Simulated assay, not measured.
Amino acid sequence: MDIDTWWGLVGRAREAAGDRADDRDPPDDPLPGALTDVLAALEPAEIVDFAVTAYEVTASAYRWPLWNAAYLIEGGCGDDGFMDFRDGLVLLGREVFTRAVADPDSLAGLPVVIRMSRGQSGWIGYESLNGPVQAAYGRAGGAADGFHAAVEAAGRGRIRAGEPGGKNGDAEDADAMRRQLPRLAALFLD
């Protein structure tokens, strides 16, 4: 699946969710269901392609500077938390995602991040994009127990694990974070 088509599907789900598309915290978050609905209109093989492309997109965000931003925003962030953060960042849409990967400090301008810095409710992360994608696969007629095998087969040679890219600043060093992520540090450390 080409990247423009992939982001277009995410955009359609965001449009369906309306003004509630930017915060994963509410228990009745409409975006995951909207994504399932959009994807369920596709053929199972296209949904598998969406899943493989999702891995590639989130892998492009596997970068130390973004992980440090997630650490500040979330008040700590381990491996699983950073996976959730990147999946949720995808759901914020192409523009926000692309800007955040290039400049993690840009996240300081998001209303949900500002609310979080004030101790109010909000969350960027999302537990797993696999949930809505797998649900769509089943609704589109794919064998429920075959989803993971189909994604693994389609992704063979395309999905690679590795170390995060970029320069790793010590997320627990407040001075280092003020230099690396000044806007986020102003919200969460000062």
Score class of each variant (00 low, 15 high):
residue 91 L to I: 05
residue 92 L to G: 07
residue 92 L to C: 00
residue 92 L to H: 15
residue 93 G to S: 11
residue 93 G to R: 08
residue 94 R to Q: 15
residue 97 F to E: 02
residue 97 F to P: 02
residue 97 F to L: 11
residue 98 T to A: 07
residue 99 R to L: 05
residue 100 A to E: 00
residue 100 A to N: 11
residue 101 V to L: 04
residue 101 V to R: 11
residue 103 D to M: 10
residue 104 P to T: 07
residue 104 P to M: 06
residue 104 P to Y: 10
residue 104 P to C: 08
residue 104 P to E: 04
residue 105 D to L: 01
residue 105 D to W: 07
residue 108 A to R: 12
residue 108 A to G: 13
residue 108 A to D: 07
residue 109 G to W: 10
residue 109 G to M: 03
residue 109 G to E: 14
residue 109 G to S: 14
residue 112 V to C: 09
residue 113 V to R: 10
residue 113 V to I: 13
residue 114 I to E: 14
residue 114 I to Y: 01
residue 116 M to K: 14
residue 116 M to P: 07
residue 118 R to T: 06
residue 118 R to I: 00
residue 118 R to W: 03
residue 119 G to L: 03
residue 119 G to P: 09
residue 120 Q to C: 03
residue 120 Q to G: 08
residue 121 S to D: 14
residue 121 S to R: 14
residue 122 G to H: 05
residue 122 G to R: 02
residue 122 G to F: 05
residue 122 G to S: 08
residue 123 W to A: 13
residue 124 I to W: 07
residue 124 I to L: 15
residue 125 G to A: 08
residue 125 G to V: 07
residue 125 G to F: 05
residue 126 Y to V: 01
residue 127 E to V: 12
residue 127 E to N: 12
residue 127 E to I: 11
residue 129 L to Y: 06
residue 129 L to D: 03
residue 129 L to M: 11
residue 130 N to S: 14
residue 130 N to Y: 13
residue 131 G to A: 14
residue 131 G to Y: 14
residue 132 P to V: 01
residue 132 P to M: 05
residue 133 V to L: 01
residue 135 A to D: 15
residue 135 A to W: 06
residue 136 A to N: 06
